[in-house]
Write a protein that binds this DNA or RNA. Structure first.
Lengths: 201, 201
DNA sequence: CTAAAACGTTAACAAAAGATAAGAATTCGT
DNA sequence: ACGAATTCTTATCTTTTGTTAACGTTTTAG
């Protein structure tokens, strides 16, 4: 995909949050860069400050932490979604997690530095504050839903939710990533799948 | 506590996020109201749109959902913290949870209507966007931490975290609220406490 | 193309958690 | 102050999950 197509897609997706006029857009895109991540390469790593927010033009990533030498996958992001180790990005402190490309992934990137240049550029400041607010609110709602499912639902119920809603996650993802995502072990997920199969058979 | 003291506290706490000059402050406070919630009264209820964000001057609240007729407590907020059923507030759709005062609680309230009046008031718009962004980012980080603990830690580890960090939550909170908050049953928490006692004895 | 690595299922056993109920201690409402 | 309700612990039993290991299959890398 060429960069102008990617930018057009980005602009269209952004319009959920904020609409730039031509003059603003020209300045805005000067603060963007492209990043191409080969499969298995990292967008963010434990112990390193995450300097970027990315917007996924194509591909996908997984978020994981390492505990007792084990990788534990906590989340995924797909096309037309944002990706960052937000706490690290926002505080510019070292990240506690990894973010890794699951496929070859093309991203539009806003560095923390460029974001703050825009937040301090009178031409863009207002819209960037608004943009930042709406993005943060959007992901706040995602987290609120996800926390609620952990508090009120069993792993089996969360998996059934995934079957009905989370098409994309299930299609191409290794099952042990999904197990972690649900808060259980791969073996346990395999058993849950068996139980469901037996019931629906 | 009188209202001017409360406002002074609020102003000071807000300075973590945004600093108002005198002219702005005068307009800002015209968009605030006070709310006094008796113990056990609700700040938000299932099925009703949550129209307000509150700032807790004194007291505390718990967030809970009802599942199979059971109340399941998912979170708490204390003095100098914000409280809202954010998804409902932000989308103005009916809430899926309840928020209830644990003690008599005094709040400073910004209604959704007033928030949007300020967001559209040229005198305040920029700072309110910024305020909204920073608040959302703050709670995004809280959620990120909390999700991480659910994905990577056992209930026992989460309880031990609470023992070292969460002083306030543990002090005055019924134990079955804390159990829900940890994602387990009250009986299970009681057993975890016993195990810990036996080890440290 | 081939060897190695990763993946998903299953089994067997251990550990933990859920459900239910009983009983004592504490708190609450009036 | 009193009875009722709530809270916490403990016990028992059941269910679920974790752990480890084995096995066949699939995918990956060189």
């Amino acid at each position: 995909m060429d960069t102008s197509t990617a930018l057009a897609i980005f602009r269209q997706q952004l319009e959920k949050y904020v609409v730039f006029n031509e003059a603003e857009w020209i300045i805005f895109i000067q603060h963007l860069t492209f990043q191409s991540l080969k499969k298995k390469k990292h967008f963010a790593e434990y112990g390193k400050v995450c300097c970027d927010v990315g917007f996924i033009i194509s591909g996908s990533v997984r978020y994981y932490m390492v505990k007792d030498g084990e990788e534990i996958t906590g989340y995924f992001s797909f096309e037309n979604e944002f990706v960052s180790s937000y706490k690290s990005y926002l505080t510019q402190q070292p990240a506690v997690n990894y973010i890794q490309a699951l496929d070859d992934t093309l991203l539009i990137v806003i560095s923390h530095k460029n974001m703050h240049l825009m937040l301090n550029n009178p031409m863009l400041a207002y819209k960037m504050e608004r943009f930042g607010r709406l993005i943060a609110e959007h992901y706040l709602i995602c987290y609120e839903d996800r926390m609620a499912s952990f508090i009120t639902k069993t792993p089996e119920e969360r998996y059934l939710d995934l079957l009905t809603n989370g098409r994309e996650v299930l299609q191409r993802m290794p099952q042990h990533y999904i197990a972690n995502f649900l808060g259980i072990t791969p073996v346990s997920l395999s058993r849950i799948r068996r139980r469901i199969l037996e019931l629906t058979r």
